[in-house]
């Protein structure tokens, strides 16, 4: 299990939280995803054998939230 923090562009709508968390939590390999709305970060605990940070970032981008780092 590994934990990463992904910085997104400033989040403005609280409804994004449920969207991002909901989708990420459904992915295989993602143990827990938590959106930190106020710092515009996503904290993700994942299994490094099943997924990787690049894949997770790609999913967030696909949802429409540009990833900064």
């Amino acid at each position: 299990m590994k934990t990463i923090r992904i910085q997104l562009e400033t989040l403005t709508c609280p409804s994004c939280i449920n969207k991002i968390e909901g989708v990420l939590n459904k992915q295989t390999g993602v143990d827990e995803a938590k959106v930190m709305f106020n710092s515009s970060k996503v904290k993700i605990t994942y299994n490094e054998e099943e997924t990787n940070p690049e894949e997770i970032s790609a999913i967030i981008e696909k949802l429409g939230y540009p990833v900064l780092s």
């Binding site: 409804s15 969207k19 696909k62």
Partner: peptide, 15 residues
């Protein structure tokens, strides 16, 4: 609309 579509594609509901 793009945001709405992106969310819909990932089966997420949005404002």
């Amino acid at each position: 609309a793009i945001k709405a579509f992106q969310a819909l594609r990932m089966k997420a509901f949005s404002i």
